[in-house]
């Protein structure tokens, strides 16, 4: 079972935060096929959140084929996102670390590195 948390400062809507946290848990293998998501009532009680918001998030995950609702029982994971790309994480991370070392040698501080990454990420996404 996983627990949700909400970041009020993120600018991301509560329903999307719930969706993202489930996807993240699936990607990292924290949730596997057959696992149950917290019930709507449990999430409402834990976060003082609107039940419609939780339902909306679960419906979106269902549409994406990641979970299935069993009426009267709960919502269960039907598919994992921890796929073959997990194997690629390690070499990519090492490459990124080499790049970070290079950036620091060039005199960039953490803030400049983050700004540069954010800009490159955005323009990369526009090209893709």
């Amino acid at each position: 079972m996983i627990e949700f948390s909400l970041d009020g400062q993120s600018g991301v809507s509560p329903y999307l935060q719930v969706v993202q946290q489930v996807r993240q848990a699936l990607r990292l293998g924290l949730l596997r096929e057959g696992d149950q998501l917290p019930t709507v009532k449990e999430v409402v009680a834990a976060l003082a959140i609107n039940p419609n918001t939780v339902l909306k998030a679960y419906r979106e995950l269902e549409r994406d084929g990641l979970v299935a609702a069993r009426p009267g029982v709960g919502t269960f994971v039907t598919r994992t996102l921890a796929d073959a790309s997990l194997a690629a994480h390690e070499p990519l991370r090492r490459e990124l670390e080499r790049w970070l070392a290079k950036a620091r040698r060039a005199g960039l501080d953490d803030e400049s590195i983050r700004a540069l990454f954010a800009t490159a990420f955005r323009s990369g996404r526009e090209v893709a």
Binding site: K41, V44, A45, A48, I49, N50, P51, N52
Partner: peptide, 13 residues
């Protein structure tokens, strides 16, 4: 405040 909204949201659920 949190407890109040919690009770209210549970009632909505």
């Amino acid at each position: 405040r949190r407890e109040f909204l919690q009770v209210l949201m549970e009632a909505v659920a």
